[in-house]
Every structure is written in structure tokens, then in C-alpha cells.
Simulated scan of single mutants.
Amino acid sequence: MIICFDIGGSAIKIGHAYAAEHVRPIGRVPTPGRDFAAFTAVLREAIAAAGVSPARAAFSIAGIVDPDTGIARVANIPCLNGRVLQRDLTLALGLPVDLANDADCFALAEAVVGAGRGHDTVLGLILGTGVGGGVVVRGRLLDGPGGFAGELGHGPVTQRVVGDPPVTLPAFPCGCGQSGCLDAVCGARGIEMLHRHLHPGASADSHAIIAGWQAGAARESRTVAIWLEILSGPLAVAQNLLGAGIIVAGGGLSNSRPLIEALDRELRSRVLCRVERPLIVRAECAIEPGLVGAAILGLRETREAVSA
């Protein structure tokens, strides 16, 4: 059995994994975000409560790991930020530890047991509070545990002159310290900021904006049209580079099937290799993808350790 943890800023989700298709969510506990000793104590309690000794502990984390130094950048959990996290968790738990970025775990789960099954290359696209992603090639993460590959949310790439009639947008600042990132304008908070910028005095959350667009409201329709234009260009570049068989969308914005279908149409009009079938589809993994992706990592490492 592999014990899996999906580490978020407010809660730690726990699961037991016996196979990629057999992951049992056990529950969740609050995240002790500022105290590493308290954080690892919560993990040890979960391991002790399992009743059997896990072969490994596998983690999905909302951060990235420097592939050269092993140092983690986990902005929303200060006690993990700046640590050589795999080493420190291995020492604290007394178990082999596997780590991956949460977007990578999502992509891995969808590639193996979700909407990406049967495709050699899968791009996972997170459209949540912000924008993220991960890439899986033949069932393996493209960059191992680093968490960088597929992160198209960051980098100064957003188109500035957009829409019909055209409007010139500023390079909106991003939480990563750069300006002009997709993360700043194409996640849920980003589309809300875009709406306020395009329509001064207007204030609506992402759900209301999408509902208004679906109902044909003029302001919301303009916002969504510009959002689609901003996002689909860089996404087309990613698709041209990777040649993904499928792009699987997750996160809160992906709950709108019409929005994902519209993004798919916009993308397919921009890529070099035109296809008639959808390229972007909604996620299908029924169990928490962070737990499932972490489980796949741990189970694979267990098999490879046994066969070595």
C-alpha cells in the first residue's frame, strides 16, 4: 500500500493506494502551514492510523522543486518553502518519499485513468484560481518531480491588443513577479479582473461572467471573447510544440462545458495540425486527482524498486 497526501494551503487530503484504479480517499486534516514539526506530526499520525506499514509516501504539493538543488518553492505553506523537501520528509517519516507538483499529479491522473487514456502525450491544463499545467509522455511526467514542464501560466506572453473592436490591455502584474502572464488574466480571478478593466464599474465573479456570456449579455460576451483570444494563442504554441494527443482541462472554470468547448474551437482554429475532433476535453478522474497522481508515482517507484 502507498499512503498518499495532497497538500494544500488549508487542508491535507489523505488516501491509501493499492493500484492506479484503486485509490481510497481516507479524509482530510487542517494543514499546519507554519510549523514543520507540527506538519510532519500530522503525516505520521495518518501513517500510524493506516493499520499497515506503507511501502512509500507520495505527495502532491502546490509548488515546484528545483531539479538541480531539490529545494521546494511552496508559497502558500511557509514551513515547506525553501526546504530540500524530499530529503526532509524522508528523514521525518522514515519512508521513501515521492513528490510532484499538484498540476503534474492532475495531468498524470488524467493520462493514466482519466480523459487522457490511450494518448501518448497528454497536456493537463488547470483553469482554476490561476492557470497551470503538466505534461505526461507515455505515462510518465515529462520533467520528473520538478513541476516546471507544462506550466504555461507564467511568462510574459499575453497578447496586448485584442478583441473586435480592438482594445489595448496593460501587462497585468502576476503573483510570480512578472507581468503579462496568463496566470494573471486567464484564471478565475483573472477573468474577473479583465471584466472590471473592460467595463469600468462592473463587478462580477467568474460564475456570473460565464453565465452572462451563455445568456448572450453584451459585456460578459465581450469579456469571454477576449479571454478566449488571450488564452488560445499561447495554448496553440504549446500544442504545436508538444503535439499532445489530448489536452485535459481541470479547475473551477472547466466546470463550464460551453466555455471549454468554445476554448477548444478557438484553439483548433489556431494550431498548425488541424483536427476535426476535440483537442481540449474536460477532466474525468472521479477521485481526487492529486491523490491519484501521487499514487501513480509511488506505485511506479515501488514496482521499479522491486524489479531492480
Rank of each mutant, 00 (worst) to 15 (best):
E110D: 08
A107F: 04
L95D: 02
L127C: 03
A100R: 00
V113W: 12
E110R: 01
P78S: 12
A100H: 05
E110G: 10
T90K: 08
R117W: 14
V113E: 13
G124P: 10
D88W: 09
V97N: 03
N76L: 10
G124F: 10
V112N: 09
C79R: 07
V122S: 09
E110K: 02
V113S: 10
G118W: 08
A115C: 12
T90Q: 12
L93S: 01
A111S: 15
V112M: 14
N101Q: 02
A92Y: 04
H119K: 12
D98G: 13
R83H: 04
G114R: 04
L91Y: 06
L89N: 02
D120Y: 08
A107P: 07
V97P: 01
G118D: 11
T90L: 08
V74D: 10
I126G: 03
D88P: 06
D98M: 12
A100V: 02
V84C: 14
L108V: 05
N101I: 09
T121C: 15
I126K: 11
A107K: 05
A115F: 11
I77R: 06
H119Y: 14
G116C: 07
D88H: 04
L80M: 12
L93R: 01
C79A: 07
L93G: 01
G94W: 00
L127F: 07
N76W: 12
V97Y: 00
G94K: 00
P96W: 05
A107I: 06
C79E: 06
G114F: 06
E110M: 03
A75I: 15
R117M: 14
G82M: 06
V84P: 07
A115N: 10
T90A: 13
V122G: 08
D104H: 14
A115V: 13
L108H: 05
N101T: 04
T121E: 13
G82D: 06
P96V: 05
P78A: 13
G124I: 06
V113H: 12
R83A: 05
E110L: 05
G94Y: 00
I126R: 10
R73H: 15
R83W: 05
T90P: 03
A92D: 08
R83E: 04
V74M: 10
G118E: 12
N81V: 05
L91F: 13
A103Y: 04
N101W: 02
P78E: 13
L89Y: 01
R117Q: 15
P96A: 10
P78C: 11
D98W: 09
N81I: 08
I126N: 10
C105T: 04
D88A: 11
G82A: 07
A111E: 06
D102Q: 07
A109R: 01
